[in-house]
Design a binder for these strands. Sequence first.
RNA 1: GCCGAUGUAGCUCAGGGGUAGAGCGCUUCCUUGGUAAGGAAGAGGUCAGGGGUUCAAUUCCCCUCAUUGGCUCCA
Length: 646
Amino acid sequence: MIKITLPDGSVREYSKGSSSMDVAKSISEGLARNVLAAKINGEVWDSFRPIEEDSAIQLLTWNDTDGKATFWHSSAHLLAEALEAMYPGVKLGIGPSIEAGFYYDVDFGEKTFGEEELAAVEKKMIELARQKNEFKRQDISKADALKYYTEKDDEYKLELINNLDDGTITFYHQGNFTDLCRGPHIPHTGFVKAIKLTSVAGAYWRGDENNKQLTRIYGVSFPKQKELTEHLERIEEAKKRDHRKLGKELDLFAFSEKVGLGLPLWLPKGTMLRDRLENFLRKAQVKAGYDPVVTPHIGNKELYVTSGHYEKYGEDSFQPIHTPHEGEEFLLKPMNCPHHCEIYKARPKSYKELPIRYAEFGTVYRYEQHGELHGLTRVRGFTQDDAHIFCRPDQVKEEFIKVIDLVLYVFNALGFTDFTAQVSLRDPENKTKYIGSDALWDRAEREIQEAADEKNLITVAEKGEAAFYGPKLDFMVKDALGRKWQLGTIQVDYNLPERFELEYTGADNQKHRPVMIHRAPFGSLERFVAVLIEHCGGNFPLWLSPDQIAVLPISEKYEAYAQKVYNQLAEEDIRGFIDHRDEKIGRKIRDAEVKKVPYMIIVGEKEQENNELSVRRHGQGDLGSLSFEAFTKKYQEEIDKDLETK
RNA sequence: GCCGAUGUAGCUCAGGGGUAGAGCGCUUCCUUGGUAAGGAAGAGGUCAGGGGUUCAAUUCCCCUCAUUGGCUCCA
């Protein structure tokens, strides 16, 4: 007999070799019907796998993240089974579950696989699912595994097996399908009731550009048809928040092929929004002791040779600008830091002056890959809310913590509560990608983690995500469709001070090298605005809204009063427009609602006589008549409430 | 850069081997109005660009460009 400990702490006895499904059945039949897998001593197992020792178990259903992952992983196998049946000779790569669904990477050989074929594959998958084929686990020796895939002529699986240790290899079977797989899987395919194959994409084998590109088929599946329908509806809803769509609808920004790919044009309303964000941060930065600086959009090539950027990215960048002077070359600036280093060097510094914090909304240009351009989130010209802090080595951690505070203040004020703090480290396998000594890197990586820990930030460490000159603390936020973007970033840099030979005179009257911290709470205005649009669905907080009010006269008889009201509001720095059109009030209201204008000020005979404003709040409706003072008070209170630290 | 999809009016989209349609928007006129669309008339298109097949291409085929879902990359 073995002792099984359940999550509530109770212990039950079962015969040796019982499975978690047996445990579930002994609790209730209903539960057993929903069990997809189980966590055995913290490891996810098949519910049908025999348990041989005393164990703590947790049964997993669709409501558990691990249960869903198992379900989707099994769905990937179902996809592979369908593909093998429909396209004989297809070779399989890998097929994992992902955050919302699954994919399988396959090699169709000469055949191109298009999206119009997905429906037929879906149908086949459903057919196979209905057979309720059981998943079976099989331990297999390395030799036998290699033999199986040699016969199948699948070089991808062979490569995978060759990297595994003998004795740890398992196959899974369902129906006529066999796959190299660690598992676990759901009990049988019948659990999968609804399937949607969402897209086809190219994906390099093992994520390496030098390898062959396989065809990746993405899909998602559910235990109930209704859940699939709801899932698809959610995606449709999310698409309505897409910043590219809203940017067009709300006249915020545009692109022009004539101007160039990935070079955003900010329309007046978008510029208003952007200016408000800039001013908000400027104010916070003045409080935090930053000094604004301004630098040009280009710099001599030598500047970037010194910084190391030229060597690293020169080939893949916008190419140098030439002048009538033979051999003279300038580069569009890809970063502001080299310029700021030169500002630091403008005159000698004393230790008493440090830390020095130079801030600039600096526009930079990077030649991003063609296929990677994406709305405002990935562009070739963008403005960083950049700053560089030059400090003594003993000030690094304190400064770093202050920057974390600033980033959190900004995120908080804008309601970005759902972010991931990512410690981006060097890839230990590929150190040549980075500049700077091991000792400096180790120290910087340690200091970032310590600072984050002191602020009680929950961090995720990602190897290989560091900048080439130093490790970073990145603040990642998801867009409407769940794609992750880096917004805020804080980076410790021991390298540039070295390269630019930055110095300060210490208390000992000796020259010392300062440390640099790069930081950008927004990251870039472009990307930040994009994510902001998606977060609020275009309903910006009042203080940010490009048009805060729309003054809507009932008819042209009240134009003069409307103008008077508008002028009065403008005096209070409240921005918007008067709707002069020859339209009925219902129409004017509708249009202002569609454009998501926060406040509509309706003026007619009644208002003119009483010297009042009829106020309507976007999304709320009619708020009744208010005096001018009562409205401005309400307006200010709303802004104060939005900006108060939550 | 690579794999897939898409490209028709300012926007959203329908259509289809015989030289093009809707709704919204825009212009003009009528209407002067009370909390989410008043009425009428009109303008607007080398059907992304180039090449091919054909008596005839916007429609079929190829290439290019752009957009887009991914992959790789990302100072």
